[in-house]
Computed example of a mutant assay.
Amino acid sequence: MRSAILTTALCALLATLPGTPASAATPPGAMAQAATRPDAMTLPDTIALPNGFRPEGIAIGSRPVAYLGSLANGDIYRADLRTGQGAVVSKGPGTPSVGLKLDSRNRLFVSGGTAGNARVIDVRTGAVLKSYPLATGASFVNDVVLTRDAAWFTDSTNPVLYKVPLGRHGALPDQAVSVPLTGAIQYTTGNNANGIAPTPDRESLLIVQSNVGKLFKTDPATGVTTEVNLGGESLVNGDGLLLDGRTLYVVQNRLNTVTVIRLTADGSSGQVVNRLTDPRFDVPSTVASFGNRLYLPNARFTTTPAPDTTYTVNAITAPRNH
């Protein structure tokens, strides 16, 4: 008992001495938590990918890890945002991996491009949990978004959305369903529906049509589309979309630009408030965020791909207060 009293008194005395470290007063784990906050990290601005990889989609969850898909063979590559190091975590089927989204259950939803399909991968093991044939004939299953009860995939060739409904606790169904797109969107020659995101109120879906540079609001129950009023602004070459609150980031790939739009809550209209570019951009395709940073893979669509072609992911600071 006496020993405990002396120890307590000594600790109190040390705490009052000038220059005495205050770490004893820091709650357990607080320093570690501060060191791992996104804004407290020193993260590389550019991450090298394997030569010949041909990235398109990118997905980032709550941890500083990015997943990228290969157009060359469908491999899934995991990159550590802290070190820039990475490795292939799931071998591809020999067909493209295009748009990607990661859920809270460590499942990666992958658009299959010209294969006309989608698959769901466990990123911890690399195993394919489910594969869904979505289209017959010519198709390009391009991008995917996750909502509370479904995964939605765009098709740049056919005016349709593909829905993978999620059951209780995120259970994966045996089959996907098709929802035809009608209304304002009109498919034409070239790359049609591309990136997809929810509206800020989460009631509808947003789709960018690359070839005509328009943004559409879509009723997920009916597939009926209306054009989002952007005051005449063009989103030509629009690719990946990322919604943050009421701010929508639109990657315009061949323009090497990320257009920043402030949307109304229902997504029926919006105003372009910024356009972001960077000398490192070389046809960026899609975008994901971690902390206050946007991460964009260089798809390099204007460069003929070869086994030794280099590819990177570039990070830029996201603008605040839009």
Results as ranks from 00 to 15, higher is better:
Gln252Val: 03
Gly231Trp: 02
Phe216Arg: 06
Trp152Cys: 09
Arg202Val: 02
Ala150Cys: 05
Asn194Phe: 00
Ala150Val: 09
Val145Trp: 02
Ile185Gln: 03
Ile207His: 08
Pro198Gln: 14
Arg254Lys: 14
Phe153Lys: 03
Gly245Asn: 05
Leu235Pro: 06
Gly232Met: 03
Pro159Gln: 09
Ala221His: 11
Thr147Glu: 03
Val236Met: 12
Lys214Leu: 10
Ser156Met: 07
Gly195His: 06
Gly232Ala: 08
Leu206Phe: 06
Gly240Ala: 02
Tyr249Ile: 05
Leu206Asn: 03
Leu215His: 10
Gly170Cys: 10
Tyr187Glu: 13
Thr147Ile: 04
Gly213Met: 04
Ala197Trp: 00
Val144Ala: 13
Ser210Ile: 04
Glu233Lys: 15
Thr199Ser: 15
Leu241Ser: 08
Gln175Asp: 11
Gly190Met: 04
Lys163Pro: 00
Asn158Thr: 15
Pro165Asn: 14
Ser234Lys: 12
Asn191Pro: 00
Arg254Ala: 14
Gly240Thr: 06
Asp174Ala: 15
Ser210Arg: 06
Pro159Leu: 08
Leu230Tyr: 06
Asn142Arg: 08
Ala197Asn: 05
Gly232Phe: 01
Ser234Gly: 05
Thr188Leu: 04
Tyr249Arg: 07
His169Ala: 15
Asp239Met: 08
Gln209Ser: 12
Thr218Trp: 00
Thr182Leu: 03
Ser210Cys: 03
Val179Gly: 12
Asn253Gln: 12
Ser234Leu: 03
Thr222Asp: 12
Val160His: 07
Asp244His: 10
Val236Asp: 05
Leu242Thr: 09
Asp155Arg: 05
Ala150Pro: 00
Leu235Arg: 06
Ala151Leu: 02
Thr218Val: 15
Lys217Tyr: 00
Gly238Tyr: 01
Arg202Asn: 15
Thr222Cys: 11
Asp174Trp: 00
Leu166Thr: 12
Asn158Glu: 09
Val228Thr: 06
His169Tyr: 06
Tyr249Cys: 07
Ala221Phe: 01
